[in-house]
Amino acid sequence: MDVKARVPGTIKALKVSAGDAVKSRDVVCVMEAMKMEQPVPSPVDGAVKEIKVAVGDKVKAGAVIMVIE
């Protein structure tokens, strides 16, 4: 499942690495958008398959941040 950015913003921190196990609602990434730090939760239990962004990247709304299987 894709973890997507809900709003346009900047990637402030990545809380996981590829291969990490995550639970649903675990914060996997922190974005800054609308001048606010936004925790991005995992939508599912699973493992991080691929991270598509780096800290500092600007992303659009709907952009895939990472893929969780």
Binding site: R6, V7, A33, M34, K35, M36, Q38, P39
Partner: peptide
């Protein structure tokens, strides 16, 4: 709700 999209 500041927790979601900054509450915008």
């Amino acid at each position: 709700q500041p927790y979601s999209m900054g509450g915008c």
